[in-house]
């Protein structure tokens, strides 16, 4: 072979360059023959999506999500969590559908064990932080699942949406932006984000103890009696580990469970005071 006679450096350059050129040419040819015309709509959607390919939507990347949106097999325009509402609106506009609402969420404190309903097991004199109080025998509360009321959540809230009243944190839903900081801050994990609904009905208790123990610790705790489960017309309530839980997406906000709850553990309406509809009913009735 002739190249054997050439200079070794020249050989390497020629062979390396030659293979690179060949590969480049092969790619060009293949792409010419195997090009797939992309849907215009899909391309537009791909431009709108952030392009981070995070997979947060449940598809294997932004282009995958764009393609299912474009061919209509996925109707939900709000799946992109990275892009948020802005992206959802833009996607909906491109598809010509109504701008889907990214379901607004609101923080909710799953405890109503105020000072009058619970008692203290010991006198706590440490630093006034939930985290440190929680570290000492799970805090002074008779219910060790309950709100400690030192306001770690209040401290992290940048929107002044949380306040402590009577030893229990409460969320003003008008100010809450569902940023989730309080959810992380609560050492008892009492705060969850729930779909924002005027009449959101929640078992506002997080206690997993059996009924007898709950009763001795808190007057408004869930005793898992299952009355709400039987009453619920849409089977949205389940008892999970001695605690009734309402599926917020299945709930029709009829309020029947509120009436049957023997301990008044189920609370209706968002927790910044009595909600408007109940007030109207009172006025009417």
């Amino acid at each position: 072979m002739i190249i054997v006679l050439l200079n070794p450096i020249l050989n390497a350059t020629l062979i390396g360059g030659g293979i690179a050129l060949l590969m480049g040419a092969a790619i060009l040819v293949v792409f010419r023959f195997f090009s797939v015309e992309k849907d215009e709509l899909q391309q537009e959607l791909e431009g709108i999506l952030p392009g981070a390919n995070c997979g947060g939507c449940g598809y294997s990347g932004c282009s995958a999500y764009a393609s299912v949106l474009a061919d209509g097999s996925e109707k939900n325009t709000t799946l992109c969590t990275a892009g948020g509402q802005e992206t959802a609106t833009a996607v909906a506009a491109a598809l010509g559908v109504k701008a889907g609402a990214v379901v607004p969420l609101v923080a909710h404190v799953f405890c109503q064990g105020t000072c009058e309903h619970t008692h203290e097991r010991y006198e706590y004199t440490g630093t006034a932080h939930c985290a440190s109080a929680s570290g000492l025998f799970s805090g002074p509360n008779s219910c060790t699942y309950g709100c400690l009321g030192f306001g770690d959540c209040v401290n992290v809230c940048e929107f002044n949406a949380i306040y402590v009243e009577d030893g229990v944190a409460k969320v003003n839903h008008n100010l809450c932006t569902a940023c989730g900081k309080c959810v992380k801050a609560c050492p008892k994990q009492l705060i969850h984000l729930i779909p924002k609904h005027e009449l959101a009905t929640n078992v506002t208790c997080s206690n997993h103890w059996p009924a007898r123990v709950v009763r001795s610790a808190c007057k408004v705790g869930c005793i898992a009696c299952s009355r709400c489960v039987r009453t619920c017309p849409v089977n949205a309530i389940k008892i999970e580990d001695n605690l009734a839980v309402i599926d917020q997406y299945a709930c029709i906000h009829c309020g029947k469970c509120v009436d049957v709850c023997p301990t008044k553990a189920i609370h209706r309406g968002l927790l910044d005071g009595p909600c408007a509809v109940d007030e109207e009913k009172k006025a009417a009735g």
């Binding site: 072979m1 190249i3 054997v4 070794p8 050989n11 390497a12 062979i15 390396g16 293979i19």
Partner: peptide, 10 residues
């Protein structure tokens, strides 16, 4: 290609 002309290092 590579082995016959001693370009194994490539």
């Amino acid at each position: 290609i590579l082995a016959p002309i001693n370009l194994g290092y490539l």
